[in-house]
Amino acid sequence: MDDKQLDKKLKKLRSSMDGIPSRTDKKLILSEIQSGKKRWNTSNLIIYAGSVACLLLLSLLLIQSGTFSFNNADDGFLLSSEDEEVVLLEYGSIGIVKQDFGNNYLFSSTSHNLIIENNVRGMSENAQPAVLEYHLGIRNNWGETIGSIKDFSPETNSYKNGVKVHLEPRKSLIEVMDEVLGYNLFERPVFYDGLPVIPSIRGGVYSLSFEIESDREYENSSPFLAESQRKRLLEEAGEVDVVLTIKDKEIARMYLNETEMLHIAPISDEGGYNEKE
């Protein structure tokens, strides 16, 4: 078959097909379009309403479990998640002071060791140890009190659901303590003062003191620190993380040196100690 014959056949077929009548139902198409428009308008309204509802729901979920989320603890009070915005380290104060326990030393957590040591070592009972002292102002920005005063345990002298604050030294401070003291001061007993609850908005003050010079368990440590050593220690003393826990669960961690209001008490000329405020 040559090209002309094929062309002729194709033209003939085309003519046959061109004669096929149109069966497109225009009315049906247009009515579909019209009803589709109505459906579209209705569905738009539904989508709009649904979107608003979803946004509201999402906002509620975010508030409940996101930035401001707090988890229900077993005992009914609320624990904050690890969020520095909710719990804020408002201010910090650091100093090395001569600690005078006076008649209250029995209430200190290290007093027992101190007495024994003093007896063993034959030191005066009026010995005034130097301490590295931290005062921390912690603000609770959440709308609820954090922690609880329920379930006090006399054995541990602590509240089961109470807020506890402890300090974790960073590497540079550990190195300085090793160099100056020969041991990690933060692994030693701490004089602790602070409420087990942080009221909403108002916040609370926590004091932690670490005894420096009365410790003679370590042979390499000096019984008394030179002024330069105290200065050295004080310079790095802000290199700590302030950690809040409830039931040993960490609820907040703040870097002390990043606190805007951090006061480091200067070493006084007399005796090389900060004056106790």
């Binding site: 097909m17 149109s22 497109t24």
Partner: peptide, 28 residues
Amino acid sequence: FSGTVERFAFQIGVSYDDVPDVSQEVFL
């Protein structure tokens, strides 16, 4: 354009019975 659509659909192999459905879907 419905004639064009129908013929083209038929020519490329859409069965004659289905052409109106295809044409409707095309215009929608």
